[in-house]
Each structure stands twice: as structure tokens, then as C-alpha cells.
């Protein structure tokens, strides 16, 4: 079940360094929202605050509110482990578990959470691998190690692993940055299918990709090196690319930047 995300007044810190400042936005359910912006402006940092992964980094600290269907993720009674089960994440670099087979990698989330029925496991793995467009390539070698796949296949394996636990929201941090155009296309198609079921947020440096896959686009920027990153604007993707309301957005998209 997809959920709406409501962020208000969110700042994130690494120790005393403020990486992002005062971000407020709404992410609609069953849609794809793309984050774009120059390197170092805090896209990854912001993404990681949405499933409380930011506090895993030493010194990581967050101020502000993130409402997931009216429940504040940073409420005092909220268990970060439960948050991460609801809000899944795919990382920039594929990171399958090296000791586990393809099957075990996909099953890892369920197994390690201890919340599964044995006879349903194979079913869930198959469904997730089909969901990430990988099933046909690996169905004959599910017992091979996950690291025996190509980079693009590994990334789709990681997506299968993330969707196997049935999150409500899927965060993707530059999921295609290490992939060839064909794997990229496969993952973009996949994102199109997944948004029927999940709320998807994707960070990308590829303007065409943002234009192709996303419904809404958010542009982040930072005023100077060392300054915190800020949300400049968020709007329908077509408007952002055709007729943004802020000059900086237009400069960035058209490559006239800095």
C-alpha cells in the first residue's frame, strides 16, 4: 500500500556540519518523484532521512518532521527498524550479500526479520525477481552466489531484495549510475511498473532519466560550497523542464550553471 510523505522544516547534520536546511515537500503516493541537483547539494542525505538511515552514519542528526500518512517518522515512540521495513532503499552501488545465493539475497529481508512462512518464501522470491525483471535470467541458477551476476543484474537483484519485504515507499539513490543503457532502460521500465504499487523517490544526475520516469521533480541546490543544500522548487516534471519558476532551475537543466 503506497503512502504519502509529508516533509516539513527538515534539516540534517553530520556532526556540526549542516548538510541540508529547512526542506519541506510532499511526495504523492503511487507516483515517481525525482531529485536532481549538483553534486554535494544533499540529495542522498535527504533521501536517507526519509527512512532514518541518516542516523546510522556516525554523527548523523536530523531536525524537523517527516510524516508518513500522518505518522511522524521522528516521533519519540517510533522504532527506526519498523520505519525501514516500511520505507525500502536501493543504493547507488549494487551491494548483494556476498555470502548468500541469489535466492537467499532476495529472501534476506524476510528471513532476517523472522517474519515469513517457510512455504511462501519461494513464492515471494519468484514474485520479487519477476517484479525486478530478473527472473528469466536467474531462474536456473538461484543457488549461485549473488555476486556472480553482472553489475546491472546485481542492481536488479538489490531491487528485488528491497521489494520482497513489501515496503510502502521505495527510495532509490542513483540506481542506474553504474549501468549500461540497456540495464538502465530495464530499470526505468521497472520503475514505471513499480509505481502502481509503491511510492517511489529516485535521485538521478541524468536529466533525460528524470524527465522519462518521474511525475514530479524536485531541484536542490546549495548557495556555496560548505553551505547547506536547500530545496529550490518541486513541481510537475513537465513544468520543471519546460517552464520552471526559478531561474536557477532553468540554468541547471539547460546546463548553463555556475
Amino acid at each position: 500500500m503506497a503512502k504519502r510523505i509529508d516533509v516539513s522544516g527538515l534539516s540534517a547534520f553530520y556532526g556540526s556540519h549542516k548538510a541540508i536546511e529547512d526542506i519541506s515537500m510532499t511526495v504523492e503516493p503511487r507516483s515517481v518523484t525525482a531529485f536532481i541537483g549538483p553534486s554535494g547539494c544533499g540529495k542522498s542525505t535527504f533521501l536517507r532521512t526519509l527512512n532514518r538511515m541518516h542516523e546510522v552514519t556516525p554523527g548523523g542528526r536530523v531536525e524537523g518532521k517527516v510524516l508518513l500518512d500522518d505518522e511522524n517518522l521522528y516521533g519519540s515512540a517510533v522504532d527506526p527498524v519498523a520505519v525501514r521495513r516500511t520505507v525500502g532503499m536501493v543504493f547507488q552501488r549494487p551491494n548483494p550479500f556476498p555470502t548468500m545465493s541469489i535466492f537467499d539475497n532476495v529472501a534476506a529481508g524476510l528471513r532476517l526479520n523472522g517474519s515469513y512462512k517457510k512455504n511462501r518464501l519461494a513464492e515471494v522470491v519468484e514474485k520479487s525477481l519477476k517484479g525486478s525483471n530478473l527472473w528469466n535470467e536467474v531462474k536456473d541458477r538461484l543457488n549461485k552466489p549473488g555476486s556472480s551476476l553482472s553489475g546491472g543484474q546485481q542492481q536488479r537483484l538489490c531491487i528485488a531484495r528491497a521489494i520482497a519485504v513489501e515496503p510502502d515507499v521505495l527510495l532509490m539513490d542513483e540506481p542506474c549510475s553504474a549501468l549500461d543503457p540497456i540495464s538502465t532502460l530495464a530499470i526505468e521500465d521497472l520503475i514505471g511498473e513499480l509505481k502502481e504499487r509503491f511510492t517511489i523517490v529516485i535521485v538521478t544526475h541524468n536529466m533525460q532519466q528524470a524527465a522519462r520516469v518521474s511525475d514530479r521533480t524536485a531541484f536542490f541546490n546549495l548557495s556555496a560550497v560548505g553551505q547547506p543544500g536547500k530545496l529550490i522548487e518541486i513541481d510537475e516534471t513537465e513544468r520543471i523542464f519546460a517552464n520552471p519558476s526559478v531561474q536557477a532551475t532553468e540554468d541547471y537543466i539547460s546546463g548553463r550553471f555556475g
Binding site: 538511515m53 527498524v81 529481508g109 531484495r161 519485504v165
Partner: peptide
């Protein structure tokens, strides 16, 4: 053991002690 593996496991909603026993230690065994 690369930090990415710990993060991958935590991001799946696996508690820290299970991340250590099921992902970190097997990788380093």
C-alpha cells in the same frame, strides 16, 4: 566488511544485532 553491506541490511528493516549475526559475521567468518 564493507559498510554498504551493513547499510543494505539495516535498510531492509533488519535489527542491528541480526545484521551483525547474519550478515557481518558470516562475511568475515
Amino acid at each position: 566488511v564493507p559498510n554498504e553491506l551493513r547499510e543494505a541490511s539495516l535498510a531492509l528493516g533488519v535489527p542491528k544485532y541480526r545484521t551483525i549475526t547474519k550478515v557481518v559475521i558470516p562475511t568475515a567468518l
